[in-house]
């Protein structure tokens, strides 16, 4: 089937199997490998993209349902309005191996659009579908959660905690 959609602001027309995964369309046909596959079954969140502004898992979105839709991937989001946020995210220790990070950046950015000052609990709920195996999520909370809450900055001797 032929599907016309908008990816990162660019109009794209594709022929493909109606059940082709949006993830594969992005990675293999549109050369956008920033969107990662971590599980292929909607459990890890590494493949999150925005579909008409809402975070979804691209491994579970068939091409069939992409017609006329607007897709934004991490490449465009991080180099667009989210750049400053992404820099803060790196500085706070939100990134280690980076394999979960694109999905977390996409989802976190969607959260911040709706709630610029989320609590730790709100961050945890929004990111519950994004597994991270490196950070213990603590660096991610530091980057995202309201600063008046005690998301723990590591303490060292001579610092008050």
């Amino acid at each position: 089937m032929r599907v016309e959609l908008t990816v990162n602001g660019r109009a794209v027309a594709l022929d493909g199997h109606p059940m082709e995964r949006l993830l594969d369309v992005l990675r293999e046909r549109l050369s956008l490998p920033g969107t990662k596959e971590g599980c292929g079954e909607g459990e890890c969140g590494a493949c999150a993209v925005l579909l008409d502004g809402e975070p979804v898992l691209s491994c579970l979105v068939p091409l069939l349902q992409c017609g006329g839709r607007r897709i934004d991937t991490v490449e465009a989001i991080a180099h667009g309005p989210a750049r400053g946020f992404v820099e803060d995210f790196v500085a706070a220790g939100g990134v280690q191996c980076g394999a979960c990070t694109p999905g977390i950046v996409v989802t976190a950015w969607a959260l911040l659009q709706r709630n610029p000052s989320p609590t730790r609990e709100q961050v945890a709920e929004a990111l519950a579908g994004n597994l991270c195996r490196c950070t213990g999520y603590e660096g991610i909370f530091r980057a995202l959660a309201r600063k008046d809450e005690d998301s723990h900055a590591p303490s060292r001797p001579g610092e008050t905690s």
Partner: peptide, 8 residues
């Protein structure tokens, strides 16, 4: 599921 699943 998570937020992304609930959206779909």
């Amino acid at each position: 599921g998570g937020w992304q699943i609930q959206n779909r």
